[in-house]
Write a protein that binds this DNA or RNA. Structure first.
Lengths: 337, 337
DNA sequence: TTGAAAGCGATACCAT
DNA sequence: ATGGTATCGCTTTCAA
């Protein structure tokens, strides 16, 4: 692969001049520029980004760490960041992490080694302390989907508690009393917060939830199927289910219908996230909109700003989910109960 | 950010020694090693991957170019490559391209600048010639989802023609005669090939397809909705639809049902790809399995091999889709016609 | 076992 | 407008 030296030699100019041409620098004669350009094209010269990064200390990539691309939710997150990257003519460096501290740590570290100065990371397992320390070293680090008080100006997060409340309000307004919950068994804050908000709100209306009717499984389509089976197996009647996310909700509906229950006539189901799929599921899923793509863009932009000026301050980094009522929930049919 | 020099100075050893420690090189005294390790930890030293890549000419990243992460199909592709990358302790450099030549060219070029020596690219718009030329320069370049004769040993692709045939066989076996097609309006080979295979197979049974009943829209959920509307608007009866991909199929089903048609009782629908969603759609989608994740892994592995030994040869790079019969298709109800 | 020094491919400052 | 050269952070002979 040819280098800048080759170009210089063949074009009979100095390294500096070639460099100027490559970077569209000023002060280059028209003729010289053309000559150099021609040589570059002739020998198929491509500047070496690594060498460039080494000296400029800018590597023009924005790093993302997330658990799994196949989850549409995370794909949207990546997509949001990607749009900003493309906009700034930067590239995406992806580091996936399982949901455990060691692998999250490693993912971030790989980005550090690459001297990626702008990064958007979703970390669920590292401690607040570790993240705070990391953030102190990497000025362009933004945390997404988590709130850490001392890092308030660098966290883009969703109010899960409020999401739970909204779900409860919706179900309550539909007269549901006997409600089940399908939660995620992944040990992170989100499921718990959604559940707290949910039960809190129920409580204000004097409604409580049977602990037997709360099951936790993997936050996937399959997990949702399994959870619904577990719920059904208990043979405790319920008229509505609040599900951790849309994928699980769709899995649950699948099982429910396979077992002869109609959604929403027999059982109402409400999800969380509002992934594209929610609109196309049958029945169309009632859910809480989690504007992850918008948040990801915001996060990327913030990281970019922070990387330039570590002290830049912003606000309104908290996003509020909104209820999207579609077909999977309906007012309780009195006849049935 | 501290460098290897800092470590050397503080640990009172030479650069070379630190380098040896960092790389777990041999011939380093036990004591020295420990001393260096301690200093590294103390000052939080992280080797600079760019500098390293510059001298070793290996940058330990595998590049991927694809159109859009939010499409589950491509997310799976990325995921497949990612698994191999993780396995080899390499990182993913993502370059998304719109579906046009210029942007595909640019995406690949960005990877080249990074001296990414292993890459898996889906390119639909660059000409065979351009790709051949590119491949000649980048030994670790593998093309996925496209077959180019002179690059036969570096193309991982699916037999779309055969997919079309299988779909036709299935519908034929269910006695369907009046069949509509929803194709993709994106100007690439795939839709055309699937359609060719489909009509060819129909022809062998003396069945032909009304050109009026072939519509093309965007290959998305929304596109599917739109296509179904267009089809319905023609008021030409049909009992089955062969759809370009699962996303469109699900969109189409959505519209069909919104208009009072039951799937599969009134109209059978068959998709293509077998994305995870297909299993959870209602009705569960009959489709053709496109083992994209497996193919992506294979592509990554092949690229890795090629990067090391440009002459390595392989075979069986062609994948064949398989029919997955689920609920969205059923035998034609004679009563209705 | 350890160190000195020559690059890797670019940029940028200082001359000219 | 152009060229010379130090430098970025690291690896890798070659000596010692």
């Amino acid at each position: 692969m040819s280098t800048i030296k080759d170009v210089a030699r063949i074009a009979e100019v100095s390294l500096a001049t070639v460099s100027r041409v490559v970077n569209n620098g000023p002060k280059v004669g028209q003729k010289t520029r053309e000559k150099v350009l021609k040589v570059m094209a002739d020998i198929g010269y491509t500047p070496n980004a690594n060498a460039r990064a080494l000296v400029t200390k800018k590597n023009m990539t924005i790093g993302v760490v997330l658990p799994d691309l196949t989850e549409p939710f995370f794909a949207s997150l990546a997509h949001g960041v990607e749009q900003i990257a493309r906009d700034k003519k930067m590239q995406l460096l992806l580091s996936t992490s399982l949901v455990d501290a060691q692998s999250e740590r490693q993912a971030i570290n790989l980005l550090r080694e690459r001297r990626c100065d702008v990064m958007v990371v979703q970390s669920k397992k590292l401690t607040d302390e570790e993240l705070i320390q990391l953030a102190a070293q990497i000025s362009g680090l933004v945390i997404i989907n988590r709130y850490i008080e001392p890092l308030a100006n660098r966290c883009i997060w969703l109010d899960n508690l409020q999401g739970g409340r909204l779900a409860a309000q919706h179900l309550l307004s539909l007269n549901h009393q006997h409600i089940a919950c399908i939660s995620s068994r992944v040990d992170i804050d989100d499921p718990q917060q959604r559940l707290s908000g949910f039960t809190q709100e129920l409580a204000t209306k004097g409604c409580t939830i049977n602990p037997e009717l709360i099951v936790s499984t993997a936050p996937t389509l399959q997990g949702g199927e399994l959870a619904a089976q577990q719920l059904l197996a208990k043979r405790i009647p319920f008229s509505a289910v609040f599900v951790y996310n849309d994928a699980m909700a769709i899995g649950a509906i699948s099982t429910l219908e396979d077992n002869g229950y109609r959604v929403p006539q027999d059982i109402s189901v409400i999800g969380f996230d509002d992934v594209l799929l929610a609109r196309y599921a049958r029945p169309k899923l009632t859910t809480l909109n989690y504007p992850i793509e918008k948040m990801a863009k915001r996060a990327a932009l913030l990281a970019l700003t922070l990387a330039e000026d570590a002290c830049a301050s912003t606000n309104d980094l908290k996003y509020i989910p909104t209820l999207v009522a579609r077909e999977s929930t309906q007012s309780l049919n009195k006849i049935r109960k």
